[in-house]
Structures are given as structure tokens and as C-alpha cells.
Design a protein around this nucleic acid. Structure first.
Lengths: 252, 252
DNA sequence: CGAAACGTTGACTTGTTTCAATAACTGTGG
DNA sequence: CCACAGTTATTGAAACAAGTCAACGTTTCG
């Protein structure tokens, strides 16, 4: 995940103009080897002492950590243009697993070759440093989501953020995008149970905010969605008493 | 926060030997300027388009993001040896604020000088890349805490992790360490309300796991603490019925 | 000494999880 | 083409963890 600079809660910065193709030079290194993976296939094994870095060409992947009891926290979704495993390759040990969410094509580079390339070509360091820095900012956004936003705000926020990234990658049109991940996977990213996420999605759908169905996300009311994404846990969800029926989302 | 490599949940790796003084070269750059800050004083302003990078010499600091309603998510605690603002300086825009938690001394370097130094001295890139990568791993740990661990596990886990970092920095002795942060601040890092954190700490104290008082943390039962830190949300907290009285922590 | 943080506690409310059960979808082989 | 198994989605009811509100103790510091 190297591609996030602006999230739903902060507007793009001047730096953005330079961002998208930072890694083009790196991705073109001849040492990269084209590989394919099937859905649910492991791309990076957690704990691997000599992992590869990848440049995702097509499809979706995700990074995750497994807990003792089988619980899973999804740390990031990867879309084409991202470089999963970059930080791990630099440290020489992968701290998280990475799996394909759809069939994917990715260029791989062994960690030692990545480090060698950085030594021999000083011009390579700058884009990699920026990529890692953006990853750090994306992780911050995730921490804010998980720590301080309600389930509804978190959900809307992440879907908006994904939309912005896809838009920048030219993979989104208008108010929606193809989102080939299951509710289970999304729930594991949002720190929610799949059941509760399902209820959240239902409410968002019934309230006309967005629809998450059949591999597609459509924002029926993008402005309201953006407003919702900013609300945090103790925001008064009920501007007026005796509101219609099922919804407890902040009104327009 | 550049200093975490191993967390309470994963053992140190072979890479660790090289880690601690990665940034010594950087910190010694003549351009660094020594600065002092008082508790609660702003070191980095969120949104600053030309931030500084810092090398923390003494005292504690923390990075945070503010939400619309005044809520705060603390993203990281910084101890001596850490380099708050590194990623932000590289991107040219600070995505999070940073404040002193105690009186601190820090060396500062303007972002443009940092970028210039990286261009002119190719040997500098490698340690900075590793520092950022470690920061990424630390953020992952935080996401797992916030997303998938119970309040008790999260709390114990973070206090253990802080202990390990302080140990490596030579600032911890035996089973405890000086921890000059308020419960409010810790709660904002753990994604909990201060009130609930207070109850969690009381239970941990009454159960003989650890004490967090008067600026000090003491682990009365380190082994049990480590076990608790690994438990996640749906772990059965009650191995036997009719347990003593107040505790709902997993037994020894 | 008084003010202002910070810490502590109780009672109550709410969001989220869990359990259990059923429907809808997907791919596969007969 | 349909029946099957397996995953994913959906729903209700009940349990629980964490948050909110209000109050009071405690420490710190000017």
C-alpha cells in the first residue's frame, strides 16, 4: 500500500502531483519477475525471513496479521500500483502476511536485490522513501478509524478512501467502483464482526447513503457519505427526536 | 517512533543487531539544531507544509490526530532515540501533530535539509529506510491492538511494548519503568475512554498483573501479563465458574 | 490556600459481539 | 441442467464490553 496520500478526511496536498508514478523506475527493474496468484493464495508468508517485494500489476491483494485464536486483522488493501511487502523486504523479515483477494499479476523482487538496487542506484531511494512515508500516513488513517470512529463512520470512511485511491489509479467511474472483497474481509479490516458490518451496510443502504453489493460499491449520496465519515464515536447521531423509523445515522 | 522492531507478540529477529544506532549518523548532521519543549508544547503542527524532522534526545513526546469533535487519537509515543516527523518531513506535509509529554530536548532538521542530505549522502538512505520500515511495523502492531484486542489485552500489550523499547534504550530496570504519561493520554492511544481505561488498570492492579501509578509501571506478574497481551476479543475470560470475586481476567 | 488538572467510583445507556438459524450465491461434477 | 457442498450474506434475540453522565477524591502547582 503505497498509494494513499489523501484520505477522505484531508484534502490532497501539493506533494500529490509527484506521487502516482514514483515507483515506475523501480517497477521496471529488469530483475522483477512476473508472477500470478489465485484468490486466497499466499503472496507473502508472515515471518518469512527473506521475503520479496511486489509491484502489483492487476487485481486486489491484502496484508494481514493472524492472532493466536484465529482472529485476523487486515492491515491494508492493495490495488494495482501498490507495492506490498516493501517495508518487510527492507527489514529482511515479513511482519505480516499478504494474500491475493482476486486473481492477481505482480512483479516480484527478492529482498536482497531490492537492497542492492538501492545501494547501487542512489536515485531509487527517494521514491521508495516517499512510498514508505505514504504508507505510514495511510496507517495513521487506519488507526484513527479503528480507535476513534464509530462502526458506521469507519465503514464509510474506508470505502470512500478506497474509492479515492481507485480513482487516482483510473479504476473508478463516477460515484462507484468495483470492489471485489467479501464482507468478511472488509470486517476484518474494520475491526468489526462480519455480522455487525452486515447490519451497518444494510442501514447505509436503506438510508440511501451507499450500496455495497455483488462486488460493487455505489455512493447514492456522496456528500452525506463524506459527512458521515467524519463523525466519531460520541457524535450525537440523532439531531431530532421522533425521527422516521430505522435509521440512526446523522441526517442530511 | 523508529525504535520498535520486536513487539510483545513477536520475538526479535536477526535484523535487530543493526537496529538501534541506525540513525546515529543522521542525528549527528551539523545542521541539526538543539531545541527544548515544555510539556504539552507543540513540536509539530498538524498540516504544516514545511515541517521539521526531530531526533528526540531526552523526555517523552507523542504524535496524534485530532478529530472534528475534539476527540484525539494518539498514534505513537516517542522516547529518546526516536525520530518523530520523519515520514512527514519526507512528504513535505505533516499529517499528524506532535507534542511533548514531558520536558524534552530534541535536535531538529528542516525538511528540505533532510531531503538534501539524503540526496548528497547516499549512505544516509539505508538507515532512514529501515527507520521508516520499523515505524510501519509498529503501526501494524497498533492496528492489531485497536482492531482485534480487548481493552485489557490492548492495555497490557502497549505497556509491555513500551517496556521493551525502553529496555533497549537502557531506560528500564527489571520489571518496571518510569512512564510519565497520564491515563487520559494513554486512553487516547488505546482508543478507550479514560474512565474505562481507569477501570481496566484497577482490575489489572487488583489481580496482581501490573501497577500503573504515579508515573511508574511495574509488572507484578510479567508472565501473566504476556499471556494476557496475546488474548483477543472473544477469548474465554473465565476458565472456571465461581471464580473469586472481581476479576474477569484469564487465570494463570 | 485555591484552582485546575488528574484519578476514581457508581449507575445507567449504548454499540457491538455472540449464538443460532436460514437464505442466497458459487463453483463442480453427475 | 440440476443437485450438491461450501462459502457468503442476512436476520433475530440475548449477552456483554465499553461509553456516557455525574459526582467526588487526590494531587499538583502557582
Amino acid at each position: 500500500m503505497t498509494d494513499i496520500r489523501a484520505s477522505a478526511t484531508r484534502s490532497p496536498t501539493g506533494d500529490d502531483a509527484t506521487g502516482d508514478n514514483d515507483l515506475a523506475a523501480l517497477a521496471l527493474l529488469p530483475a522483477f519477475r512476473r508472477r500470478q496468484f489465485q484468490p486466497d493464495q499466499e503472496v507473502i508468508r508472515e515471518g518469512d525471513p527473506a521475503p520479496h517485494a511486489y509491484a502489483l500489476v492487476s487485481g486486489w491483494a491484502f496484508s494481514y496479521r493472524l492472532l493466536a485464536d484465529g482472529t485476523r486483522q487486515v492491515l491494508a488493501f492493495h490495488i494495482p500500483g501498490d507495492m506490498p511487502g516493501l517495508a518487510d523486504a527492507l527489514l529482511g523479515r515479513s511482519s505480516a502476511g499478504c494474500k491475493a483477494a482476486t486473481p492477481i499479476v505482480a512483479n516480484s523482487l527478492p529482498a536482497y536485490q531490492l537492497r542492492a538496487a538501492l545501494t547501487h542506484d542512489p536515485g531509487l531511494a527517494a521514491p521508495v522513501l516517499r512510498a514508505l512515508s505514504r504508507e505510514a500516513v495511510a496507517a495513521q488513517e487506519r488507526m484513527v478509524d479503528l480507535g476513534r470512529r464509530s462502526a458506521v463512520a469507519r465503514t464509510v470512511h474506508m470505502l470512500l478512501e478506497l474509492g479515492e485511491r481507485l480513482q487516482r489509479a483510473g479504476m473508478a467511474v463516477g460515484n462507484g467502483y468495483a470492489c471485489p472483497i467479501s464482507q468478511i474481509l472488509l470486517a476484518d479490516a474494520l475491526g468489526l464482526s462480519a455480522i455487525h458490518l452486515n447490519r451497518v451496510l444494510r442501514r447505509l443502504r436503506e438510508d440511501g447513503v451507499l450500496r455495497f453489493r455483488a462486488g460493487h460499491v455505489v455512493f447514492d449520496d456522496p456528500a452525506r457519505a463524506r459527512r458521515l465519515a467524519l463523525s466519531s464515536r460520541q457524535d450525537t447521531p440523532e439531531p431530532y427526536p421522533g425521527r422516521p423509523r430505522h435509521s440512526t445515522l446523522p441526517g442530511p
